[in-house]
Design a protein around this nucleic acid. Sequence first.
DNA 1: AATGAATGAGTATTCATTCAT
DNA 2: AATGAATGAATACTCATTCAT
Lengths: 206, 206, 206, 206
Amino acid sequence: MERTLSGRERDDKVQRIKDAALTVFSQDGYGQATIQDVATEACVGKGTIYLYFSSKEELLDTILLDVLEGYRTQIEQIVAEDGDVRQRLRHLLTYVLGGADRRRRQLSFLLRGTSDIGGDFKRQALRIKKDIMEALTGLVRAGIERGEIRAADPLMMAHIISGTVESLAAARLWEYDELVAEADGDNWPEELAGLAVNCLYQGMKP
Amino acid sequence: MERTLSGRERDDKVQRIKDAALTVFSQDGYGQATIQDVATEACVGKGTIYLYFSSKEELLDTILLDVLEGYRTQIEQIVAEDGDVRQRLRHLLTYVLGGADRRRRQLSFLLRGTSDIGGDFKRQALRIKKDIMEALTGLVRAGIERGEIRAADPLMMAHIISGTVESLAAARLWEYDELVAEADGDNWPEELAGLAVNCLYQGMKP
Amino acid sequence: MERTLSGRERDDKVQRIKDAALTVFSQDGYGQATIQDVATEACVGKGTIYLYFSSKEELLDTILLDVLEGYRTQIEQIVAEDGDVRQRLRHLLTYVLGGADRRRRQLSFLLRGTSDIGGDFKRQALRIKKDIMEALTGLVRAGIERGEIRAADPLMMAHIISGTVESLAAARLWEYDELVAEADGDNWPEELAGLAVNCLYQGMKP
Amino acid sequence: MERTLSGRERDDKVQRIKDAALTVFSQDGYGQATIQDVATEACVGKGTIYLYFSSKEELLDTILLDVLEGYRTQIEQIVAEDGDVRQRLRHLLTYVLGGADRRRRQLSFLLRGTSDIGGDFKRQALRIKKDIMEALTGLVRAGIERGEIRAADPLMMAHIISGTVESLAAARLWEYDELVAEADGDNWPEELAGLAVNCLYQGMKP
DNA sequence: AATGAATGAGTATTCATTCAT
DNA sequence: AATGAATGAATACTCATTCAT
């Protein structure tokens, strides 16, 4: 009867637990959610979770890093695309604003989730944030080199881009303004992304 | 014969408790912080806190709203100033980026920890966020009317402003990039604000 | 301005506090009732109660003893009356069953209140209970001497009397049977008392 | 793979907790007893109690109802016996007065502590008390039909019986009179029961 | 004498974690 | 490997009691 889980089976179970944790934590908040909740959502026993994660906090850290890394990967990929920078920027915004429930849960995590994390993990999270900023800075630099973007402080521009993305994402998540709340066309994320990029490009000067 | 706290005395004590809670919550996170920690920091007994707040969560909600309202008030004030809009924008950024420890604690609070908040409070918090967005939108509209800003979607521009501010503030708080981390002149917030406003105005188009 | 309460004033206040405690304790139970509840009901400050009672428990003990002593006094008085024993028994029952709200609160105390009392007080309470049983025993003995009651164990008869009284009183208090619940004539306590005494006298033998 | 408590195991544990609670509550009173006391007495962890009872109060209610129901069951059984009513009455008294420590604890419980019970539970408790009174009333009616007992108000007679039993039981519990306190023969409960029944039958009339 | 603000000891309750099966 | 019953550390919250005014 003794049997060892194949790597594939193991990975499936771990993923199921992480998905459940993402759902439950983003719904109730890390503090309110219980391990039992996660276990129930994942259709496993409480004890099983401890076979794969040493503590509730490690579970939190893991999925936070997962989400962050997912973003980094995706953003780095978009940044590395061929073609003009403006198009890549539109991709970026479309990616963050689009996506269905699962992405929204992830976003909810990113935008508020750092309240219960320990110092050891914080460093990794900041490392990833830095990576993302660097990717954006690189994108700006590429635009300047290609003559698509005017020569200005690339890091500041990266902040402007990143901040705009996050602000729109938050608005979408909490639904606090019309720009995002009332968007309902089939491809509203793309349209919104286009609008945002236009604004970013032209600046505020008349 | 009687001994009832005057309004002033009462307010002082309440403020002491809120300050202590802000300090402790922003340091350890709401979940980790204990009421005893707050009481010790405020130099009062545990029970005293419950004379003024019905629960730990009410204390959290109260200071979160306080901080948010403080920001709203200040921002609305800056937005209502006379003079050109560009100058007001610089003020705004300087205000958020500047400030000493207390302001940093508040920021840390805003940018972290909405993981443990309940539905009733959430509505108020979003109401305030909306107010802030509306104030910014108004500022953009004023700029357009005055011919200082080109005619574009004011709400999108407000997002760009708000996002930029938050991104820079977060960078300052978590110290994850050089732009902010290495700023050390006497008036770096102002200089950074100026730089940001320039970028915002001119846009990315070459 | 310094002034000492006259004995009369002092007694009034003590009585007000005891009345309030009787009301509150019998309503909510000693465990649930708070000193603040008692103070509010008595229209005094919390601190004032501690001028006259050293602790919540002493307050409980005091009113329990008060109630018990009131019963003892009343019963000893009835037992000492002139005239035939049967008449005195009717008085006794009428006294316990009759009386308005205040008496009911007292009863509620007597019939359930011994759950939270300490050992030191218990002795006094039992002393009084014993006194009451002795008074009843004496009444039976008097009846036997007068030829009104057949010669049998007087203590057992005292138990029968006392038990009957308590059982009817409890039924009235908790309203769990028709005999008492539906009594509503103007002088139902007397009628019920008469019925009980008849039954007690004639016994069950056919 | 699985490990779920069988019904039997579960019942055993629940019973152990209820026994412990009965012991502790009757010793120290509900208010003074702590859940830790009960857990220690039951040789389980504090948390285990909450696996089977949702609160301290539910535990109290449960054992109170258990004890009451035990009495009801036993009394209804005795009442339903064959043979003459007088004999059944003796059984009844012997049952209540006799019994070893466990029964005394139960009695102590019934006669003390209804000071902390809530409204929902109260109804059930009164329902049971009513059932007991009805059983006694039925016994009296049976006696009347059989010609063993004179025709009189059966409910009043039930009160007389019930009151006598309780009065004697209380005397035994608190040991406040000689009738019960000095009883020490091997079968004193039966003798006392016989004496009581004699008195009840013959009445007080000479 | 009277008061009620302040206090902290005391406790019910929760829940992450363990471990026998 | 998987489970969930058992556990007790940890903590929010209550309230009797004190004491400055």
